[in-house]
Each structure stands twice: as C-alpha cells, then as structure tokens.
Amino acid sequence: MINVILTVLAPLIGGVVYGIERVVKARMQKRVGPPLLQPFYDFFKLMDKRPIMIHSLHALMGIMYFIAEWFALAVLLLGNDLLIAVFFHVIAVLALVIGASSVRSPYSVLGALRELMHMISYEPLMVLMVVALYLVVGSFDIRDVLNYEGYPILEIPLVFFAFLLTIPMMLQKSPFDVAEAHQEIIGGPEIEYSGPFYEALYTGKWIEYIYVFTFVFLFGGSHYWLGILLVVLAFLFINLLDNSSARLDFRTMVKFAWSVLIPMAALNVILLALWQ
C-alpha cells in the first residue's frame, strides 16, 4: 500500500525532500535558507510563465523525461524486479539526452555528452549493487528484500559505501555534478528548457530523489528503522559532500567510478560469494 502512495505522490514527496535539502544546505552554510515549500513556489511560478521553446521535439523530450522517470519509479516500487527498474532508468536518460542534444546550443550538447559519462559511471555500479542485494537476499524481488531478516548493510558495507559515492553522480551533486555544472555550463541538459517545459525537468529531478533513496532504504532489509536511518544519514552525507567539495573533471569522475568504486563493490561481492 505504502509503495502505491509513494509512487503516486512521488513528485510531491520529492518536492518536500528537495525543499528540506535546500534548507539543510543553507543551514550548513550558516544561512537561513528558503522556506520548506520553496520548490512548490518555484513550481507554481514556472506554471505562470509564458511558454517558449526551441522546437517541439526538445520540449517534448523534457516531458518524456519526466514521464519516464516516474515510470521507472513505478517499476521499482510496484514491480518486483530491481534489475528491470535499473534498466528502466535508462529510458529517462535517453529522453533527456536526445532532448538536450537536439538543440544547437553548445552548453546543452556538452551537458548531454557529460550526462552519458554519468551513465557509464553509475550504471554498472547499480547493476552490481542489485546483484549484491540478490546475493544477500536470494531474490531480485523488492518485497523479498524488504522482508529480509538480516542486515544487508552489514553484509555488503563496501557496496553501500560505493553506492553512497554514486548518489552525487545520479542526483547531480558536487563533486560529481559534471553534467549540470551550474557555474560552468549553466545546467547542461536543462539549459534550454523554460517555463512549463522546464517544470517537467525540475519535477523529474525530485522523482529521481525518491528513486535513489529507495535503493538506500533497501539496505536496511526488514528493519525499517535502519532503512530510514540510512536514508537520513545518506541524505546528510550527500549534502555535506555537496557543500564542502569542488566540482571534478568528468574524466576524474569516470576514473574514480571505474578504478575505485566498481572494484570496491566487486570485491565485496566476491568475498560475500566465497563466504556463502
């Protein structure tokens, strides 16, 4: 039941999470920060703008990104196979990348290409993480993971840590906000969207929060308090990292993912497989 609610209300909950994040970030910088519902004010404001676009395909892809993102979340929460949910996420990336590279703006195209670099950094790791969860639980089914008696986090801590460092890549947070890079390429893929069309992307990002933190929650197994604790800690850690680090080059990101994170997760999986 709760998963249906979470799926249907994903944009709302994601918006609140984003609002909390902005407040938390401001407090970390000793600022007051915007109100908690600020993302929704932004949302309403954007609804009220005159719609302008580059061309229909571009605008349409923004909307498709939002729908695909939501659908990926639905597959994750309502389906029963985690692996499929990981691959569904790629459709959202497809829409985003096609949209972003369909305009002849250098920043947008650059952002799209960097988005691809993001994908090769986190995609294999997501697959590894799902496989690691499978090793622990013995099933790809999300319900089985949530009914697992043990503590997945204790069996695959390195995978969790690797995933924790992957979250900035997925949510476009410093030091891995390479594709978005507001000070450098001004939002990358999202630069050309405006008004109601930008809304789709803006809200799609909120849904991505739910999508990512659901995976974090799974590391708690059937101990929901642990899952919630992990989500909160991960959230705080990500924001701390975001506030305290500078952006890295995309090469560094890919190298880091491939030479540190993936071997780390693989090592954990191998050890666990041998242990069993």
Partner: peptide, 13 residues
Amino acid sequence: FVKFKADVVHPYN
C-alpha cells in the same frame, strides 16, 4: 506529430 503552440526563441549562446 506533436506541435506545441508556443513561441520559439533562440538557443542560448
């Protein structure tokens, strides 16, 4: 097939 009825602007440059 989809044609949005919205004004067209230049790409950001």
